[in-house]
């Protein structure tokens, strides 16, 4: 309870500020409507009207929550194309789009993490790679992903690769860098004394790697994985914007095309919940793994 109270207070303050902001942000439309109809708006009418517009400039929190509920549970259980009636997920529900995003994110995350760990091992063990590749790995992250994403998709599409893979590659591109940096730091974390001890055991290079460097790098790896999986989700959403074949990115973009602000906000919060969930899962695995390795604090 001592942990929850501050968080709940902050959330309550934020929600209150949000509700207060809704009135002035949406007031202009209501005044225009009243002026056209030639009626006067009382303040209480103004407040209730701004809370329930169809296309508000800033939707009220309860509208976003209602949209989230409607486009997940209600759509799947009562919709004509929902899971309950048709046996497959409805393409109008956030569950379906979230699933599309999740699969691409996970594939990209696995590719990015694997490539990142391999590159980190190469950098730590090969002086030439350390000197030549690391600056470019850093420089590669300054390329704006939003400009790169359509190019990657077009190029891959022209050689016949489409669907989940291009999105996963963009996700991998974003998630691989934190892993490289974290793993290089982690693999170099053993100090001289520990390395000397391995030497007195006359340990082979492989044994030093498996029994000293790799275990020591685990806390660093998990920290990077948490950053990387959130970055992979962002990458997937960026990759979905130009493709328009399902996913939370598509919901965001179609919402902004048709002025469906509530839909944008619902998709945004679904993405944030997904990100928080993924980071949380990595955190649970981290705690389990580090405890079993005797490193948990």
């Amino acid at each position: 309870m001592t942990r929850a109270l501050p968080i709940l207070t902050v959330v309550a303050v934020l929600l209150a500020a949000w509700y207060i902001a809704v009135v002035p942000m949406n007031a202009q439309w209501e005044r225009d409507q009243a002026g056209r109809a030639g009626t006067e708006l009382t303040f209480s009418q103004l407040v209730t009207n701004t809370m329930s517009q169809d296309r508000p400039v800033l939707p009220a929190p309860h509208q976003v929550v209602a949209e989230l509920w409607n486009s997940t549970v209600i759509e799947e259980f009562t919709g004509r194309r929902g899971w309950w009636r048709s046996g497959s997920l409805s393409n109008r529900s956030l569950i379906y789009h979230g699933w599309v995003t999740l699969t691409a994110t996970m594939l990209g995350f696995i590719i990015g993490t694997g490539a990142g760990i391999l590159l980190a091992v190469g950098i730590v063990y090969n002086r030439a790679m350390d000197a030549s590749v690391m600056p470019w790995a850093i420089a590669s992250q300054t390329i704006p992903i939003i400009a790169l994403a359509p190019m990657i998709i077009v190029v891959l599409n022209s050689i016949g690769i489409s669907g989940v893979v291009p999105k996963a590659i963009i996700a991998a591109y974003l998630s691989f860098f934190p892993v490289v940096v974290g793993m290089v730091k982690g693999l170099r974390a053993p100090d001289g004394m520990q390395m000397d001890l391995m030497k007195t055991y006359s340990a082979t290079g492989l044994a030093v790697f498996l029994k000293l460097r790799l275990p020591t790098s685990m806390p660093y790896l998990f920290t990077s994985l948490k950053v990387g999986i959130a970055a992979a989700l962002v990458g997937t959403i960026v990759g979905e914007l130009p493709v328009q074949q399902g996913g939370l990115g598509v919901r965001l973009l179609s919402g902004s095309y048709y002025g469906q602000t509530v839909q944008i906000w619902a998709a945004l919060f679904a993405a944030a919940l997904l990100a928080a969930g993924l980071v949380g899962v990595v955190g649970i695995i981290e705690r389990r793994a580090l405890r079993r390795m005797g490193m948990a604090t």
């Binding site: 939003i146 973009l253 945004l268 993405a271 944030a272």
Partner: peptide, 13 residues
């Protein structure tokens, strides 16, 4: 949690 919001999605807003 807010940092996990995909910032790209807030652009249209």
């Amino acid at each position: 949690f807010l940092a996990a919001l995909p910032i790209i999605g807030t652009a249209p807003i």
